[in-house]
Design a binder for these strands. Structure first.
Lengths: 223, 223
DNA sequence: CCATGGATCTCGACG
DNA sequence: CGTCGAGGTCCATGG
């Protein structure tokens, strides 16, 4: 990894186009082609290039210019180095992957193992099931044999989540009869609650589970 | 800005929970409280804390531990430094803001200045208009006096965009009569096209404009 | 390659 | 502060 502290200008053209005037930034170039330009504020880089991009260095009018090019979509990022304060190369050895818990995927596993979290008699049948217009989180049946669609959210559900659920319910109702739609989340925004009620959809309060023992991130390759 | 190259372990608990075993990473701590841990791959930090978090340093069992705490939601990030290869402090002076063109906001401006991009006789009336369930990009009327909702996307529109548009149309049709919904984007995904047609919604191909002369980012405060 | 949807999304705007 | 939606979103997963 190459890290540079420098006063620089940045030019980007691709999906959009941007200019950034002269100022001090941290530049990070990763071996996979990822390229980051960070100002002294915010979590997000002010400019960047994703992994798979290719870096070159050239001198233009006495200035060193870093140029990162991405194919498909065609994007070009150029950093004019006006004054380099420090440049360092870091050969990072890292064989570890992040192990994370509390995801929506774990909510789904929990519901499959414990369907009464939704309601007594609920039977989950499919996971990530492709239907007419989209991919349903969980498709199952209730105690009376009605088709039930679950839309899971690991955090507070908003209007978008309700629209998503409604789209699935309507797609399924074209082939089957009445279909129940249940939004499963820790909570709802005020607007989501209003729309949910108006559309005749349901809500179950469920928190994403946090495992105590976190496996290695590699575990995911075992499935 | 503080930058550290180190072999470290990372522990996070908050909205989710994660563990990252020992390996070499770049750690970036910004004066606004943003805290980033980067592995040698990907554009995204493997662990982070957003701006507004507070960093402390402590020594635990002979190891230096960086601890970043966020209030609301309560989140804790801890980095155990096992071996520090380099640590540097960079006093970055930067008064420039990014000037970006090609955004959805600029698509909207273009349509207000040039409504026939949608169709002859179209009259845009409101921008970012709050309606029953959400906020409409552009609300206007067509040549025959019908209410028209535009949903703009700066890139290829997907199923999600169609659901959004449909939600707006249905909310408006509760009060007014027939309402036309038009998705305005450079292109559509296959699934979006199918759903759009089934729902009786329309599509107009429009590319986000790229300005030639980019103003300072500050310009946005003038509106 | 495209399509789909999650994310510790982040970020800005508005009420 | 919560709600809402954009984003050069990035990213993994399937077809």
């Amino acid at each position: 990894m190459l890290t540079i502290f420098a006063r620089c200008r940045v030019h980007y053209d691709g999906r959009a186009k941007s200019e950034l005037g002269s100022g001090d930034r941290v530049i990070l170039v990763k071996p996979d082609g990822a390229f980051l330009v960070h100002q002294s504020k915010k979590r997000e880089p002010v400019n960047w290039q994703p992994p798979g991009s290719f870096v070159t260095v050239e001198v233009r009018e006495g200035l060193v210019v870093l140029r990162s090019v991405r194919r498909k979509p065609k994007e070009i990022l150029e950093v004019e180095l006006e004054e380099v304060y420090l440049a360092s190369l870091f050969n990072a050895e890292d064989y570890e992957e992040l192990a994370l818990t509390g995801s929506e995927a774990e909510m789904a596993e929990m519901i499959f193992r414990n369907p009464e979290l939704i309601e007594p008699g609920f039977k989950p049948l499919f996971r990530e099931k492709q239907i007419g217009h989209g991919i349903v989180d969980i498709l199952g049946k209730d105690g009376r044999g009605n088709l039930v669609v679950l839309e899971l959210k690991r955090r507070k559900a908003d209007l978008h989540a309700v629209s998503q659920l409604k789209r699935y319910v309507e797609a399924l109702e074209r082939e089957h009869g009445k279909v129940r739609g249940i939004l499963v989340a820790p909570s709802l925004t005020s607007g989501a609650k209003k729309l949910l009620e108006k559309e005749g959809l349901e809500f179950r309060k469920v928190e994403p589970p946090k495992k105590e023992k976190l496996g290695r991130g590699r575990q995911k390759t075992l499935f």
